[in-house]
């Protein structure tokens, strides 16, 4: 048993090395908790079951895009028979999720996905329509 010290210190180094991901996680202060989403306050159900939306919201959105832009079908009938206007800004955000920052972005950044380029054109707030009066005011100011 003269090698006891050597064996145990070797074992210790091995365990420490094997557990490296855990040490690293603790050091970087990560947690196993999911993203902290801001859930819709006044809506319980989405246009599709939650599990489907989690897995396939991108397919649903592409389908909405094709049907609205190319086929000009502006209403979507959900699985429960409810009818929704096909609109990312006004329905997804405006009616339900509120803001992209509190919902879309948090999950996307949690899974280290770059935000999709939807938002280069689509607006992430639906704070009400601009009016002709405000346009006139802005148009006349030099």
């Amino acid at each position: 048993m003269r090698d006891r010290l050597l064996i145990f210190s070797g074992l210790l180094v091995f365990v420490a090395g094997a557990a490296f991901p855990m040490w690293q996680g603790i050091a970087a202060k990560t947690s196993t908790r999911g993203p902290d989403l801001k859930l819709p306050a006044n809506q319980k159900a989405c246009v599709a079951p939650r599990s489907y939306m989690r897995a396939a919201h991108m397919q649903l959105l592409i389908g909405w895009r094709e049907s609205a832009v190319r086929e000009h079908r502006l209403r979507y009938t959900a699985y429960d028979g409810k009818s929704y206007k096909v609109s990312l800004t006004n329905t997804c955000l405006g009616q339900c999720h509120g803001s992209k920052e509190g919902f879309c972005d948090r999950c996307h950044s949690y899974v280290a996905l770059s935000p999709p380029y939807c938002w280069d054109c689509h607006q992430d707030s639906s704070s009400g329509p601009a009016t002709m009066a405000s346009a006139t005011a802005a148009g006349r100011t030099p």
Partner: peptide, 26 residues
Amino acid sequence: KPVNSQLPTRTKGVVEKCNFCEERLA
């Protein structure tokens, strides 16, 4: 200015044109 938040804008690198206000006609 000002932004109409009901409708999208366009992005860099696309062509745009008058659409006869198809969304209003609808």
